[in-house]
Write a protein that binds this DNA or RNA. Structure first.
Lengths: 418, 418
DNA sequence: ACTGCTTAGATCACGCCATGAATTAAGGCG
DNA sequence: CGCCTTAATTCATGGCGTGATCTAAGCAGT
């Protein structure tokens, strides 16, 4: 089991650039002093590296702070305008393209509903391309684009180019990355949407400051993003975290995946509605799942309460499984249905989890709701190119696909027909 | 989320020493040429680092191999006699202490049954101390001891000294590391026994060459060692991998942990026997669990077959959960009951897993039996100090507790009363 | 025995790195 | 205006990996 490779003296610099840049990005503004203290790097090295980062435009000075009569400390922060990021959310019914600055403030948004063509790949690629043009036009002139993150509702396999498999939208081994690469020279990052959302939640939401957490996402489907050691866990072939299809009941209810007793068949939005109707709850033919679930939550009838109680039990047991297997610092419940249910039955879910989990790991975790809401997939997607930027300490090293102008990221839309 | 720290130019060397040492340990013997090719290091660096490793006694030359008329390649391999390793298996009924050379060949063994005192901590510490004396005496003179690995049947929390919690043997926050440190100056490594066993299986058993796998261990209890990216996953507080207490049946059979429907309550050895007896299987009062289970496996009666069939279904569903959540390259079934059951119903377990797991991740994994057997906990424990040796490239850097004589590990038994 | 020839491995000069010590910058205060 | 305090930079030093160059060690043919 070899391969834990670091090699040349240059990687060292990259690593240190990365450490400093991350500190400033997530905990800034900070003085050079404070950076030295936090990272353990000598003041000399901090000075050198920071000078490089400022030279490169990644970091800017941001005021000073006094220091008991001595020379004031200069505060540093990551440059919001170093470059921009694109996040794409390929959803089940629409494609959303958003443009962000480096601090993930949204600059522009394009919402493109998928028509009758459904999830025809060419249509999706077309939508993404159109959305790109729209947001760039809408945002006007500005810094170049670092990269494009794309969140998709399926498993992303790297071969090494991203290939997407998705039962829900009927994609089988779609070479999305390659197809998108024909539209743009910008670096592309294709990732599972739930994973992207989980990363956003870890960086800016309920998971801030955690090294390990499980983001449990409940919508029509049920999934999870497992974060270990600060980064989402992908598994050998990218399909880790399929929590919705773990077995809550051996030989139980039939799930749409074909198996029996999957958790999704008990706590997914559709499953909750089905049980509600089976228990005599009024059926609202015209409503979509979301308003139908809202109606269940608002129904004061005992039958509705029983359905919710049962849902809490199954959800708690499912969460207990996550606690027992992953021993995370936090469990973060999200997804549109998760947030709706959570607002109502979180206490009972916690109680059920306490019942089904082992005492110690349960006591050492906390169960909370997502902060960012289910719309944040595009934000999560945009964190993907940002993550690489931070990892590399800002240097677009090697044979990157990123166009570079004056050492800064360029627009790279040469092949994007206007 | 900062902290991905590497710092000085010296760490670089350590990293490269580590890479080369690991290559030689796991894939040796190799020539310098081959090392250069595999690690990507320049021939010059390989020469330098190898010279250091030879100087330090970690690596030795081992013959030559011809090369089409040119100068022959000199083969290198890790030195079996650089130092010795101690592995301790604190089991439920006994303490086993074993002494190994660096290639994990056993040099001596001491088996110390736990008397009526049960798992009194002082008794266990005394046994370990006695075992140490025994194996050192039995093996006679030889290279120094690198460190002592201890596998315990419970959760190991690092605070940062290892503290052990174990329901099964009634340990609550036992500061085992600190207590053992009073007997010896040798570096100590306390770890969960299942985790240690899993690491052994990954290094020398069914997991050889894998980066990710789940070692599923079934005995009286049920647990798992999850290996991601080559190293066992511990979770935030060391209790990850509690597979036995994930829920197979919400509201199902009562488990000894207090919850309902735990997997362990269906596939643990005791659970299988209970179902067998409930189905009318003959009860053998005098026999231990192991022979009782053997009798079930040998019983040709339909009732016994049904029990096994049901066990296969639950086990398959449980394994499917592991596949869906972790997406590992391999599932490795071990533990004494796991191996017994596996020999008989592996096919049916595979079939059940196929039914309950998602198609893609199931197709990309394989389900196999452990190679090393359940006795290998001591081997696994011995891999713990070895792992650190390999990680550090052999240098006992910093304020190590390891006594060093002439740059080599010493015996460090000064405080071990003879 | 000797001469090329071929390949493995060692040595050397170079450029890059982080660091502690020394030096310079920048403010407050009497 | 000079002194003190603290922040930041600069400098000399020792490590490191690397490509180029050099030495070592075998073989084939004469």
């Amino acid at each position: 089991m070899p391969e834990g490779t670091k090699r040349t003296v240059r990687d060292l610099r990259r690593g240190n650039r990365s450490v400093l840049l991350r500190s400033l990005y997530f905990d800034g503004p900070l003085s050079r002093q404070e950076l030295s203290r936090r990272t353990g790097l000598s003041a000399a090295s901090v000075s050198n590296v920071v000078a490089e980062l400022i030279e490169g435009g990644l970091v800017v000075e941001a005021g000073t702070v006094e220091s008991d009569g001595g020379r004031p400390r200069v505060l540093l922060r990551s440059a919001r305008d170093y470059g921009r990021l694109v996040g794409v959310d390929v959803g089940e019914t629409r494609v959303i393209v958003e443009l962000f600055d480096l601090h993930l403030s949204r600059l522009a948004k394009a919402d493109l509903p998928l028509g009758d063509g459904g999830h025809d790949v060419q249509a999706v690629v077309g939508h993404i391309r159109a959305g790109l043009r729209t947001v760039i036009a809408e945002a006007g002139d500005g810094p170049g684009i670092i990269g494009i993150g794309v969140g998709v509702p399926g498993v992303v396999e790297r071969t090494p180019e991203a290939v997407v498999h998705s039962q829900t939208i009927g994609w089988d081994a779609v070479p999305l990355e390659q197809m998108l690469a024909e539209c743009t020279d910008l670096p592309l990052f294709v990732e599972n949407g739930a994973t992207a959302l989980g990363q956003a939640e870890m960086w800016f939401g309920a998971g801030r400051g955690c090294r390990s957490a499980v983001v449990a996402l409940i919508g029509s489907g049920v999934g999870a993003c497992v974060v270990t050691d600060g980064t989402p866990y992908r598994g050998a072939t990218g399909s880790a975290g399929e929590w919705g299809h773990t077995t809550a009941q051996v030989g139980g209810a039939r799930c749409r995946c074909g198996a029996r007793g999957c958790l999704e068949a008990y706590v997914g939005a559709g499953a909750v509605l089905r049980r509600y109707h089976a228990a005599g709850g009024a059926r609202a033919e015209d409503a979509d799942e979301e308003s139908a679930l809202a109606r269940v939550l608002a129904d004061p009838a005992p039958a509705a309460r029983d359905v919710l109680e049962e849902t809490a039990t199954y959800l708690g047991a499912g969460i207990a499984d996550l606690i027992n297997l992953f021993n995370p610092e936090k469990i973060i419940i999200g997804g549109w249905a998760g947030l709706m249910l959570g607002g109502r039955i979180l206490g009972r879910v916690r109680a059920a989890a306490a019942e089904y989990a082992l005492r110690r790991p349960f006591a050492q975790t906390s169960i909370e709701l997502c902060h960012l809401g289910p719309e944040a997939v595009a934000v999560g997607a945009a964190t993907l190119p940002l993550a690489r930027l931070l990892d590399r300490g800002g240097v677009p090293t090697g044979p990157s696909r990123a166009p570079v102008v004056d050492g800064r990221p360029g627009l790279g839309l040469s092949r994007l027909p206007g």
